[in-house]
């Protein structure tokens, strides 16, 4: 049974557009240099890809980042995580590890408490066979 309050519709959506629509109510968000998404260019382990999101934005009682959504474009369910902050976090930052079955784009969308949306530059994470070396 789902945990109370867990947004099933957004997490069960099977395409990026639907997952975005169900989580942030739009499919197009302007890229902002304030939303920093850090992920490796090549995954060391596709089952645990470290992703860090950090937003340059005040975190005061009347102006703060309320949520950050993390998507992997072609995962079976593209919405991976929805982080909800308060001003007391001091910084809209988190680090988590995600699963990626194949080379794909990762993107984050931040939402302020006033409802303004800002996207990170999408970052490609390559899931590849290795085996070469200098």
């Amino acid at each position: 049974a789902n945990v109370a309050g867990w947004p099933a519709a957004a997490f069960d959506a099977k395409a990026l557009d639907a997952a975005m629509k169900d989580s942030i109510d739009t499919t197009s968000v302007k890229v902002s240099p304030k939303v920093h998404l850090t992920a490796p260019t090549i995954a060391e382990n596709g089952a645990a890809v470290p992703v860090t999101v950090d937003v340059d934005h005040p975190m005061t009682a009347d102006d703060y980042i309320e949520s950050v959504y993390l998507y992997v474009d072609h995962n079976p369910t593209p919405l991976a995580s929805a982080f909800h902050f308060s001003a007391n976090n001091g910084q809209a930052y988190f680090q988590a590890r995600i699963k990626m079955a194949k080379t794909d784009m990762v993107r984050a969308v931040a939402k302020t408490n006033k409802g303004v949306l800002m996207a990170s530059k999408p970052q490609e994470v390559k899931v590849t066979i290795g085996g070469c070396g200098g």
């Binding site: 090549i42 995954a43 060391e44 382990n45 290795g130 085996g131 070469c132 070396g133």
Partner: peptide, 11 residues
Amino acid sequence: SFPFTPIANPA
């Protein structure tokens, strides 16, 4: 150190 060690060589 080599950034791609667990990719270019066995993890």
